[in-house]
């Protein structure tokens, strides 16, 4: 699998670390809503198809990417910085919770 890092360009998957489902919403730090925390810590989508994921270019520039990857074909349809995109609507497009 080739992943296109926004800084470094297309690089082998071996340089990256999977950092989990990109659809998770972290509650506000002071939130006492245990259901929301449980959902954030434990719930993971597992679609057969497009999935919104966070990866880190750990063997390169160390930036975090948000990308849409098809879990069946491994085709990556979009990649971009995870930074600053925490609550963006973009990640609801593919496999996101609505």
């Amino acid at each position: 699998m080739l992943i296109t890092c926004p800084y470094c360009g297309p690089r082998d998957v071996i340089e990256f670390t999977y950092q989990g489902d990109g659809n998770r919403e972290r509650p506000q730090p002071a939130s006492q809503d245990l259901d929301a925390w449980n959902a954030y810590v434990y719930d993971r989508l597992n679609p057969a198809g497009d999935h919104n994921e966070i990866w880190q270019h750990s063997g390169g520039c160390r930036t975090h990417l948000r990308m849409v990857r098809n879990t069946v074909t491994h085709e990556i349809s979009s990649t971009g910085f995870a930074r600053g995109d925490h609550n963006a609507a973009a990640r609801h497009k593919a496999g996101g919770k609505s």
Binding site: H64, A82, R83, G84, H86
Partner: peptide, 13 residues
Amino acid sequence: MQHLEYFLDVIWP
């Protein structure tokens, strides 16, 4: 290190 980077980059940019 990875834990700190994740929070700085993804959660609290």
